[in-house]
Amino acid sequence: MEEAPRFFGHYNLLFIGEALVNTLLLSWLGATLGFGFGFLFAICRHPRLFGLLPLRIAATLYVELFRRIPFLVKLMCVFFAFQLSGAQASLFTVALVTVVLSAAAFAAEIARAGLESIPAPQWDAAEAMNFGRWRTLWRVVAPQSFRIVLPPLFGYTVGFIKSTSIASQIGVMELTYAAKILNTRGFSALLCFGTILLLYFLICWPTKHFGERLERRLARR
């Protein structure tokens, strides 16, 4: 504990701050992009929007497979795929691609639950009003499914904030990796990992709490 003042020195704080920014960037950017792709998958799987069976099967297969592979294994596959294809990509990009790939699969399920929460008669009614299918999606279904989709997205984002800690395995400069480096520089494990745990908690808890409050508020309406 006597090394605490030295641990919280200027350069260490900058170092941890930079790692914190990387963690946030990786998880938020990954979750956002992943949601975009996941929404596309959900659209592909919706029988009212795409009649194409192969497309639906492909989207379903992707979602089911990628939710059943551990993050670490996905990370290793993406990491070596980049390395062996000879593409020049930073470690951050590798981790981001992994987060997007797995986020897309999880977001697809959330988006699907949202789209399916709108009863079929609304589609029929929109059709009777001469709405096209895309216009129905954009003007009728999407605005209403918003209430179902929004709350779980917070828990989903928290899940990826936690998953990005695994990206330390390939050496991405995020919080967990920063803790490992500080630990090897000779600071006590208690201080390094304790600080990081606290930081993760401070990011995740408010996010999750806000999501739960939002869920209750939207459910009441």
Binding site: S165, I166, A189, L190, F193, L197, F201, C204
Partner: peptide, 19 residues
């Protein structure tokens, strides 16, 4: 425990408890 990553929790157990 729900709001912190499992990996860091195990790091904590693995590296702090020996101290």
């Amino acid at each position: 425990f729900i709001n912190t990553p499992l990996l860091v929790q195990i790091f904590f157990i693995f590296f702090v408890l020996p101290d």
